[in-house]
Design a protein around this nucleic acid. Structure first.
Lengths: 218, 218
DNA sequence: TAGATTGTTAATCGATTAACAATC
DNA sequence: TAGATTGTTAATCGATTAACAATC
């Protein structure tokens, strides 16, 4: 194994916590703080300091004992690791409730993703704009993906259409799909799919609530 | 340890996968299928059959070797475990992009949660209806929580307001908060918080894409 | 009966937590 | 110097995966 191929293992749980740190760090940066310790960050984010320390390893920034980590370097390191320092273009298919919400959601804008247009098969929606972005006919998606070299697709279509729209995206050149449907997409191995499932969060809440209730009644 | 207190450990990863099974099982049920095997379910959901078998233990339904699990019993078992057989009322605070999307999102309706009203501090929004539900002034929330004995609150307010609105909910009697802000809420130990974080999903997608790209270039 | 599938117990794997030396 | 904090290595914990006997 050469040095180049010997890359560090990236733990997904750590990756998923990075945006949380980023958010807090940016606030600190605005406040003019130059250094931050893991203990302090841990308090803010509601985790243990050891977790934070392990997670920040990813950014590749070295801290100073007794002082902490340099805030701006840390922000840069995390953003660089996530590839969020320069925004990536994305197309969104399915401009329903959720789809239009995502098009207007600040959280996405601030996190390196730029939804350049929305697509829908409903003629009543095409031609309009949602949060300043055009809604185009779904059938125009493949052509525009090729012309604009868009690599990320956001899937907010109804479940029945999910697989076929995903295939449409992939054959046009989309390499990453952010899947908000509850469908398990069958894709080529070189395409990355991130499934975002609100109902699984709700399931977790339901069970935690039930458990808390049970404990209270004991 | 008595038999009553010796409850089974519930693994959260399994809980989070339950809604996925539920969705597929309901489709099978409509199609008139009576039994389903773990191998078949695994194919549909894109997981290994052993994972499925372990997960379904939770529902407490016994399957028949060579035949599989009875579909309708399995649905009932899962719904019962999640407490989704009779819908729970919930209030939503913060009727912005995401808030109104959630109010209209079918996925929530079908999953045991009934958003009865939305609340917002913006006078321009109060008095209107979103997806058939009334939008009321935020200050009326505590009183209505008490009167209607609502136990679940959905938090889609801006980050700055998150902590104070959460406290308002809790002191009125809310026991579970579905938190869509990126704020780590400081709450009493008897209140359950489920944080739903879109940006963490985006972080995962970004990293997976970067890795796939790297592999391709090798 | 043979084969497919369940259900349980054991083995592996990975993530979290703890411990502690190094450092400013 | 003393104390706080980093950074690394080891220990624990939990989830996933594998193995296999029981069963229809």
């Amino acid at each position: 194994m050469t040095l180049e191929t010997m890359e560090k293992v990236v733990r997904m749980p750590s990756v998923k916590r990075l945006p949380g740190y980023l958010c807090i760090l940016k606030r600190f940066h605005i406040q003019g703080r130059e250094f931050v310790s893991t203990t302090h960050l841990a308090d803010e984010i509601g985790l243990g300091p050891i977790v934070v320390r392990k997670d920040l390893e990813i950014a590749g920034i070295t801290g100073k004992p007794k002082v902490g980590y340099p805030v701006s370097e840390l922000i840069e390191g995390i953003e660089n690791f996530l590839g969020w320092n320069n925004a990536t273009d994305a197309f969104l298919a399915g401009v329903g409730c959720l789809g239009s919400a995502l098009m207007g959601y600040q959280g996405i804008r601030n996190n390196g993703l730029n939804i350049v247009a929305g697509f829908d098969s409903d003629p009543a929606k095409t031609g309009t704009t949602v949060h300043g972005r055009q809604i185009l006919p779904l059938k125009k998606l493949p052509d525009l993906v090729k012309r604009m070299h868009v690599k990320i697709g956001i899937l907010t279509v109804p479940a029945e259409a999910a697989q076929s729209v995903a295939e449409m995206m992939i054959s046009a050149g989309i390499k990453g799909i952010w899947n908000f449907t509850n469908v398990d997409l069958k894709t080529d191995s070189d395409v990355v799919v991130q499934k975002e499932d609100l109902s699984s969060g709700l399931a977790a809440l339901s069970v935690k609530l039930k458990r808390a209730k049970g404990k209270q009644e004991e």
